[in-house]
Simulated scan of single mutants.
Amino acid sequence: MLTFNFVLLHVADPVASVGFYSELLGKPAIDSGPGFAMLPLSEAVLLGLWLASDADPSGNGKPGASEISFDVADVAALTKLHADWVEKGLPILVEPVEKPFGHTFVAADPDGHRIRVVASTRS
C-alpha cells in the first residue's frame, strides 16, 4: 500500500520559496538550503522545494508548473483569506468563484505555482 506524504515543487530559489511558504502557512522550515528546502503542510504531508535545475539537470524542469490546494472551513474563511493574501500582495489568478466542488480562488507563489483555496460544498 502506498502512503501519500510529500509534494515536490520545482522552484527557482528554494530559500526564497521556503520563506514565502513559511510566512504564508505560519509553519517553520524543517530544512532550508540553496538546492532544497522543506516544510510541513500537515502532520502527514511535507512540501519540498527543489531547485529546478537540480531536479531536472536536462534543463527541462521549469518552476511554476504545479498546483497545490488547501481546504478552509467555509466561504467566510475563504473570503477572509483571500483579502489577507491580496493585502500581502500575492498575485490572484482566479478571483473567488463558485465551482461544482465548492467556492474557490487561486493565487500564485513567486515561481508561478498555483495555490488553490477551497471551501468545499461536499458533505
Rank of each mutant, 00 (worst) to 15 (best):
M1T: 05
M1A: 12
L2P: 11
L2Q: 02
L2H: 14
F4D: 09
F4Q: 05
N5Q: 12
N5D: 13
L8S: 15
L8C: 14
L8W: 09
L9C: 01
V11G: 02
V11K: 04
A12M: 06
A12I: 06
P14S: 03
P14V: 04
P14D: 04
P14L: 01
V15T: 15
V18K: 00
G19E: 13
S22N: 09
E23W: 04
E23V: 10
L24C: 10
L25I: 10
G26M: 02
I30K: 01
I30D: 04
D31E: 12
S32Y: 02
G33L: 01
G35S: 04
F36I: 10
F36V: 02
A37T: 02
A37P: 11
A37R: 08
M38A: 15
M38G: 08
P40E: 00
P40Y: 09
L41P: 10
L41H: 09
S42C: 04
S42W: 01
A44F: 06
V45R: 03
V45G: 04
L46P: 05
L46S: 12
W50K: 03
L51H: 14
A52C: 00
S53T: 15
D54H: 04
A55P: 10
D56A: 13
S58P: 00
S58K: 02
G59N: 02
G59Y: 02
G61I: 01
G61K: 03
G61V: 00
K62R: 15
P63E: 13
P63Q: 12
G64L: 07
S66W: 05
S66V: 05
E67R: 04
E67V: 14
I68Y: 06
F70H: 00
D71P: 03
D71E: 14
V72I: 12
A73H: 06
A73Q: 13
A73M: 07
D74F: 12
D74L: 10
A77M: 01
H82A: 11
D84Y: 08
D84I: 07
W85Y: 14
V86F: 05
K88W: 14
K88C: 11
P91W: 05
P91I: 03
L93C: 07
L93I: 11
E95K: 14
P96T: 00
E98C: 06
K99M: 13
K99G: 07
P100Y: 03
P100A: 08
F101H: 14
F101W: 15
G102F: 10
G102S: 00
H103Y: 15
T104Q: 15
F105I: 11
V106I: 15
A108D: 00
A108E: 13
A108I: 10
D109T: 13
D111I: 08
D111P: 04
D111W: 07
G112W: 05
H113V: 12
R114I: 07
I115Q: 04
V117E: 01
V118M: 11
V118Q: 11
A119H: 10
